[in-house]
Amino acid sequence: MMHGDTGRRWSVRILRILLGAVFAWSAVAKLQDLSGFHAALLAYELPIPDRGLRLITLFVPYLEGILGLALIADFWPETVRPAVWGLCSLFVVILLLSAARGLDIHCGCFGGRGAPLAVALGRAGLLCVLAFWLVLQPSRLHASPKKN
């Protein structure tokens, strides 16, 4: 039982750092080319006015960066983990809608043009599943006090 518990704790830690690094990397890549990210967002043809899209262009990379760093540091886990899952789910929904509308675009997830839609959808789906699993795991805040 003890080994299982230790193994689970380690897998949570590794996954937390991995997901956090992916988010941080995505943020840095977007911040290096904000105009490119804005262009990628425009290609999604979302029903959002340009002014709103520009705000999202500035907001999303920083949110990803903050969430990524918070995930790595295990800061406010009861809030950060569901927020990461929510953001991944939002990406999946937007990519699914774009695929359903038959848009031939590149995601722009990691700066530049990004991956084709199908690849991006698979990647976002995987991240979403991993984030879901991470939400289910008890964090240090949920850990019960040790018995002597």
Binding site: L31, L55, L58, F59, P61, Y62, L63, G65, I66, L67, A70, W76, E78, T79, V80, R81, P82, A83, V135, L136
Partner: peptide, 25 residues
Amino acid sequence: RLMQLRPARLLVLCALALLAGLATD
């Protein structure tokens, strides 16, 4: 787990991201 989420903390994170984005711009 979702019910344990603290909206105030989420709001702080979002506000930080927005402020950082606007200041950088």
